[in-house]
Design a binder for these strands. Sequence first.
DNA 1: GCCAACGTTGGC
DNA 2: GCCAACGTTGGC
Length: 133
Amino acid sequence: MAHWLMKSEPESYSWNDLVRDGGTEWDGVRNNAARLHLRAMRKGDEAFFYHSMSDKAVVGIMRVTREAQADPKDSDWVSVHVEPVRTIAPVTLKQIKAEPTLGKMELIRQSRLSVAPIRDDEWKKILEMADAR
DNA sequence: GCCAACGTTGGC
DNA sequence: GCCAACGTTGGC
């Protein structure tokens, strides 16, 4: 099972919004690299929900509940369906940057990428950081 | 608010 | 096909 990180500005759509909704169509992605990642997602994959801009922290875990299909707003693009799994203690970008083993994360190397893969060891490390609080 | 990084567009 | 100009994202 693969792991991912997906970004959203909390002012636009927050983790709490996702929990409230019980699931959502992750649409609106308009970047080719991100689209490739969306297409590579498989049902059952898990993803971190990252609050960009005002918060800059991983705040929850969600699950891919349906694989990519045409974005309802623009069929040139794709969207997946996701559901919340659980809230985690926030792991901030600052903490991630301070952790040498996380230096290769796409989150850091290419900050503008809104949908990114996460290596197994990175996933595990961030979970450990959340659980340690 | 500023600016770096990245993507896209359009003139040549 | 190259590259300058412009737009957007997102960290600081």
